[in-house]
Design a protein around this nucleic acid. Structure first.
Lengths: 346, 346
DNA sequence: TGCATCAATGTAACCGATTACATTGTTTTT
DNA sequence: AAAAACAATGTAATCGGTTACATTGATGCA
């Protein structure tokens, strides 16, 4: 009773006096089956409440129609937007997702990779954890020819496509903008330089300084985990500097916000005393006062692109091998937190 | 070459001169197999890189070990936290998730339900969209004895367990707190009264008014979609009121924040002119100035509880039928936005 | 009329597990 | 010593599709 038996192609075949092969072909709209037969079969399937059994197909085809997704965290605005993009494409194409979060921990990332491997995903979409040092845990996929695409937090692997933005350029623009506002002592808040996004943003920052004849000072680079809490702690360190910096460029908005709040409490006026820029265009950037200047980049689209190029590859439509990197556009959004010139702080 | 053949229990059995039945039993640690044989089998499986094939099992067992999850949106802090909780339990128990978002649209919710049904999920976890009027699209699950659990945005269905907080109590506490601060003209921002959460929060609001001999005024209830943008628009409406209200209680933090920002720009002092309370304890509530008083409730735990009770039911451990509602604890967090008495607005 | 061609359908092996039931060999009981 | 009980393992059917290859009957063409 708890298992009312399912209708199968055998049941349909029996009722219509045709073979299961014909039913199977009809259901996938194979042109070799006559229109008349197809219609009979479709109608009966509908009537009897037939449900396709993916497992039988997967078992036979040796595919799972499943994509593994590993992200650092689910509960960030950016990541959940990316996932929404992935989901829409995958759903449309009949793929199922297994989503897992590493919580920024290499160990969990390794464990997740193993789980996904054992679940026989057809392909992988990965954004790396903060502290992942090496990526040999993905070799098992490469060896089995399971395509792997990195997005946002990527790793330069010869076999893998990456979907990301030009982080260096974004950081360059943000820093240049701060310089254009008259800032010279610019602190950069970022995470450990293991991930491309932080390496590149740092490089963009340095490049902007160099191009404007501002000497780079190691002391102005503060490394933390970019949480809001870490921003608070960074603020304390910043207040110890002498002279005080005149701008802060944080590698994400959360950290910028934590830092700003604390500095404001300490009596620093923003942007007059210190200008601020972040990265990501998190919704919080329009809540903080003054609103935060930041780099906007398209999470939803990044998810769509990643999923689409993976699935194209799986379907053999479009060889991934030709495109090794997909760059999406990013843009500087200037808000009050960095506008020293006309300081209408809202 | 793109498909290096997989190792199966047949390969293991052949190499060790035992039957596949023994291998199958050994791999699931069946006590009927001798320790010695088990060890041989485990070792060889490891050595040959054997991977368990879920599809063969699922086909045979007529289960999918898959749980369907439908949420209104993925990119809210609360929901992604809930999903993280669901994911941790499901992962642990060997279940896979299919996650889909309705984008607050009943049509998409219906489509998702159909997809999940056709994917033969073993069970469902659902949080309803804003505009879902009736839930007959879930009848197909009930009919097939597929357990269905609602969380947060629930529906009172005799066959389904619900996991949620006492929204009425939360709203009652928030409103009572505002009253205790001396407020009498309290606006309530909420969504259409189709979802329990908004009905109950409104009821709690009314109850608090009644218990303090404050007449309820229909005009003070503003209905919108609770986005930040909607909060902005609500602020405009509020500014037209005469006399101005002296407090705002919003049914979520986002909307509260949008409203606060706009009112502040219009010169309203918070909390002196208007006190504020929200709902959810979204991270944004500690970014807005003054920090937002709100109701905190445990998203991660809600996810864990929902998943655990679904899986227990699937495993026959613990009949869901006995518990029809699981209530989680919520708490009022008082912050500067509502503290009129000692108005140290930070 | 006879043969090639083709459209439509059928046959049966296969994918890799699970498990009821059968079989074997060993130990215990009487 | 024979029977009963039991531990360990084996046999074979089953889950529901896919698809290479085979078959059937109709049509085209010389």
């Amino acid at each position: 009773m708890s298992k009312p038996k399912e209708v199968t192609i055998y049941d349909l075949a029996r009722k219509l006096n045709v073979s299961i092969a014909t039913v199977s072909r009809a259901l996938k709209d194979d042109p070799v089956v006559s229109k008349k037969t197809k219609k009979k079969i479709f109608d009966l399937a509908e009537e009897m409440g037939y449900r396709y059994n993916h497992f039988a197909r997967n078992l036979r085809e040796q595919r799972t129609y499943t994509i593994g997704v590993i992200v650092p965290r689910l509960n960030s605005y950016f990541m959940s937007t990316v996932i929404a993009g992935i989901e829409s494409v995958a759903n449309n194409e009949g793929y199922t997702l297994i989503i897992s979060q590493s919580s920024e921990d290499a160990g969990k990332e390794i464990a997740s990779a193993k789980t996904m491997f054992n679940n026989r995903v057809d392909g992988m979409l990965v954004s790396l954890a903060y502290d992942t040092e090496e990526i040999s845990h993905f070799d098992q996929f490469i060896k089995k020819n399971i395509p792997l695409i990195f997005f946002d937090r990527v790793s330069d692997h010869p076999e893998c496509t990456s979907v990301l933005i030009d982080n260096r350029k974004g950081a360059y623009e943000a820093t240049s903008h701060l310089i254009a506002q008259g800032c010279r002592r610019i602190v950069h808040l970022t995470a450990t330089p293991k991930r491309n996004v932080y390496i590149d943003r740092l490089a963009g920052y340095k490049q902007a300084l160099a191009d404007h004849q501002i000497p780079f000072d190691e002391k102005y680079v503060l490394i933390n985990n970019l949480s809001q809490e870490a921003g608070t702690q960074a603020a304390a360190a910043i207040l110890q500097m002498n002279p005080l910096p005149d701008a802060i460029f944080a590698a994400n908005d959360n950290c910028a916000v934590g830092c700003m709040l604390t500095l404001k409490k300490a009596g620093i006026r923003i942007p007059q005393d210190m200008a601020f820029a972040g990265f990501n265009n998190d919704p919080v950037s329009t809540v903080i006062e003054p609103n935060l200047t930041t780099i906007n980049y398209p999470g939803y689209k990044m998810g769509e692109m990643s999923a689409a190029s993976l699935i194209n590859h799986l379907n053999g439509v479009n060889s991934i091998d030709t495109t090794n990197t997909i760059l999406l556009r990013s843009e500087l959004i200037i808000r009050a937190s960095s506008l020293k010139t006309k300081s209408d702080s809202e």
